[in-house]
Amino acid sequence: MTTRKLYLGPLTDNRRWDMVRIRPDDVFVVTPPKCGTTWMQTIVALLLSGDPDVETELSVKMPWVDIRIREMAEVADRLEAMTHRRSMKSHTPMDGLPLDDQAMYLCVFRHPLDAHFSYRTHVRNIPMSWFDMWYPEDDPDGVTFRRFLDGGAEGFDTDAMPLAHILQHYTAAKALADRPNVALFHYADMKRDLAGTFARVADLLGLSHSDAVMEKLVAAATFDNMKQNADRYAPSGGKGFMKSDSDFFHSGTNGKWHGTLTGAELAAYEAIMDTYLSPEDRAWLEFGSEGVPALS
């Protein structure tokens, strides 16, 4: 941990990575919550298998290493026993992860407000009261959004996904984006061009499938198919981890915050974004490649 930043929250602990022996062909999916984590994991699982009917079982086969729910020794032993190419999930920013020169890091981002509103829905769908203080069900005074803006990037606030944590994720990933094994993706681009996303990930992972197979893999990873088969695609699907596996894939749409936030709330958000990001970085973090004007 001497060269890694400490991210220690009530739910997650990035020191758990100390027990994982990284392999050169490992694939890391690194994201803030609700930014397309499960979607990218599914894309990776489909590409690694080449099978549109593969049982992804993400929580077991592609585990979230940071989370404290499972004993780390058991997770580490399970990972070490895997003989196939491995993939793992993390909600820790890149400056808190073990960096291997050959392992691949796929970092996925989403408009911070879309991620925030998706997280609001998510906390209502988990049968644990971890974040009731941050996300009260009855919130006439806008406590939830104030805490989203005011929360810190580390410590207790980490797991409640405040804006500062999303910005830390982005700046840490962008600082490493010149490495050939660190790639940034955006949820909006994945929605616009899912086939193109599959092609890019396949290229990064050194994988190749026929056009016919790729077409079937892409079809399996559409939002409608994943929602219709939520017990198969949701994290810990069919095991009662969430109140509704189907609701984990709530709508897959963006912009739900339009007309919900007040002018003052939006102004406060915009002030933070403009303070911490350049106009180009803000445009990409919010809207992906379509947010950044093409070079003339």
Rank of each mutant, 00 (worst) to 15 (best):
80 E>K: 13
50 G>D: 12
206 G>P: 07
207 L>F: 00
152 G>N: 13
79 L>Y: 10
216 K>H: 14
280 E>K: 13
105 Y>G: 02
8 L>W: 14
33 P>A: 06
174 K>I: 04
129 S>C: 10
251 S>I: 05
134 W>N: 12
263 G>P: 03
30 V>R: 06
104 M>L: 08
27 V>E: 05
205 L>R: 08
186 H>A: 06
157 D>A: 01
136 P>G: 01
16 R>V: 02
168 Q>M: 01
45 A>I: 03
113 L>A: 08
187 Y>V: 00
20 V>Q: 13
137 E>F: 10
92 T>A: 07
28 F>L: 03
288 G>P: 07
210 S>E: 15
293 P>I: 03
76 A>E: 14
250 H>Y: 14
84 H>W: 12
144 T>L: 04
275 T>V: 05
295 L>K: 11
232 R>C: 06
18 D>G: 00
120 R>F: 03
283 A>W: 11
71 E>Y: 09
177 A>G: 07
70 R>T: 15
201 V>W: 05
100 D>A: 01
22 I>N: 09
144 T>K: 00
261 L>A: 01
61 K>N: 14
14 N>E: 12
104 M>S: 11
29 V>I: 13
118 S>I: 02
159 D>N: 13
223 F>Y: 15
21 R>C: 11
24 P>M: 05
238 G>C: 04
251 S>D: 15
171 T>R: 15
8 L>Y: 15
172 A>M: 09
66 D>A: 02
178 D>V: 01
141 D>Q: 15
24 P>T: 08
214 M>I: 05
115 A>L: 06
17 W>Q: 07
176 L>N: 12
65 V>H: 06
26 D>H: 02
8 L>C: 12
244 S>R: 04
108 V>W: 07
18 D>A: 04
265 E>N: 03
134 W>E: 15
114 D>N: 10
157 D>N: 11
70 R>M: 12
287 F>P: 03
110 R>C: 02
42 T>K: 02
284 W>Y: 14
185 F>T: 01
77 D>A: 15
219 A>C: 04
155 G>C: 01
126 I>D: 14
195 A>G: 10
95 D>T: 05
74 E>C: 07
178 D>G: 14
